[in-house]
Design a protein around this nucleic acid. Sequence first.
DNA 1: TTGAAAGCGATACCAT
DNA 2: ATGGTATCGCTTTCAA
Lengths: 337, 337
Amino acid sequence: MAKKILLKDIAKKANVSVATVSYVLSKGSDSGISPKVSEKIKKIAKALNYRPNQIAKSLQSGKSYTIGLIVADISNPFFANIARIIEDEAKKHNYTVVFGSSDENETKSSDLITFLVNRQVDGFIIAPAENTQEQIKSLKKQNIPFVLIDRYFPEIDTNYVAINNHKATFDATKKLLASGHNAIGLIAYESELHHMKERIRGYREAIENKGLETHDNYIKKVKFSNLVDDINAKVDELLISENPVSAILYTTNTLAIHGLKRIDALKLKVPKDVSVIVFDAAEAFDFYYCPLTYVKQPLMEIGKNAVTILLDQIANPNHELSKMTLETTLVNRESSN
Amino acid sequence: MAKKILLKDIAKKANVSVATVSYVLSKGSDSGISPKVSEKIKKIAKALNYRPNQIAKSLQSGKSYTIGLIVADISNPFFANIARIIEDEAKKHNYTVVFGSSDENETKSSDLITFLVNRQVDGFIIAPAENTQEQIKSLKKQNIPFVLIDRYFPEIDTNYVAINNHKATFDATKKLLASGHNAIGLIAYESELHHMKERIRGYREAIENKGLETHDNYIKKVKFSNLVDDINAKVDELLISENPVSAILYTTNTLAIHGLKRIDALKLKVPKDVSVIVFDAAEAFDFYYCPLTYVKQPLMEIGKNAVTILLDQIANPNHELSKMTLETTLVNRESSN
DNA sequence: TTGAAAGCGATACCAT
DNA sequence: ATGGTATCGCTTTCAA
């Protein structure tokens, strides 16, 4: 068992105190220790392959240099991609990231936060699940730095990095209207989350803005708990009825994947039988026979800004909050014709 | 600023010593403290919402209850899915997982390992990049528990959870041969990694096993560093030549995604013009017009076993090593006809 | 310029 | 059944 090298070991070998070694190794050139001693210590440290015990440092400093990332599901490509960006950005600042998946579940989210708070993460980046307002407020009360991503609660004053959801679906719907569709279905989640409501509002306003009326039965909300079956049923309702829609706007990646499969199952063709716009550019869509028009989210900016804001908040707890709303881009392709 | 509650605070309120509080809170019923005092302490702890400082515990115990996960890229669906499984499994045992992406790069991998070792992770789960043998040996030497997944180095005695790569491609190739193909192309990575060599060997032996000869120019190895261009070029070589192949076996998920796109770009149809078998069932493939025959990896077993073996190794450092080879399944669909 | 020693917040040995 | 205190490895104040 290769013995762990401690400051003490180096001190002994160098015939100096532990304090001196600590100075040399942790401060820069302004350690206040003479160059001669400094060099000697550095050489010994290197020779012994000294690795500071980060845990001890953390206990002393009260900082773990770790950030907790909580998303709905780390295996969802949207979150997996953001995770990768956050990881890279965090590492640049010598931060480590630990992650947890809430599965959009309030209790899991709460357990996860507690778990990571106990582990003394310095802060959180969270894509909050529904009904987690109290958890978020609790973090605020405990003065634990965090920034919300993808979603946020307008009634709670927090840092967040989100997109302009209203404009995203407004533009998408407008595009479908411009293509001549006036019976447009919307597939959304049954959710109280603000971003979802905003996406629905964007859809509505685009239609009303054109002097048309919105039909509530064109707006379908599926339950996260029964995803696939529910999507299938709702897509059927939209497409197989007396007044079928001629276009569908899917408000998330996952909804689109399953919803498109259902369209296929119904033997309908995009865009001949039904036009479509989806959210995000999942790799899955690359193989779809019809190039899909989609709402492109600025993942890189979301991830990078989230880290920057969080680290800033950790360094300056009293710094004012950052509320960042980024714009999406509608990438026009054939499915929305 | 809500003050952090310490054992000391509880002790003061309960008029007992810090030690007593510690006993009550950390041991179970066998704390040796009288029920009356125990109850009082527990009540106060709950009332104050006491959260033990995990960092302090870690320093004392020498255990961080954290495992480091190192993969090529956390945003790759194969690894993202495994990450999720590992996360769930780890949490069951009260472990936290921190992750890092090596990008198949030796130096990044090394930096990452150092970074996480300093943070005192209790062990690693690693999908090792090429040429990282020394890093792995170094972990062994330092007696840091770890288990390799997906790939491993046969010349180094370690824990690992991998698949039977030889059989996977052997069966896949056999299937193509049975469908009447005798000019079968293979797209692999240019890599010294054992799993890649085994996949190539499986392909070769299936062909030779049928009394046919293998053609080296049917075996294409692409560079990770120049992925897309290289795949395109190699697919072209296989399909647009004097003796084109009639089938292609892609040895990874990513290779398949780009390789299939290239086939599309060449206006060739699967399986009419060229048959195909791919590795893994990426969500992306769901939208491919032709149902793809694929090698199915037991992700759940890989992830769960990796965690189990690692935690066992952490608990019993002298326990013998576990070398686990799992079988894949060839899921037959239309692309291999 | 250097070092002794007091923490950081828990745990656990050894007394009592 | 309790509690005093050394300890985990490092940082930092204060003195020398």
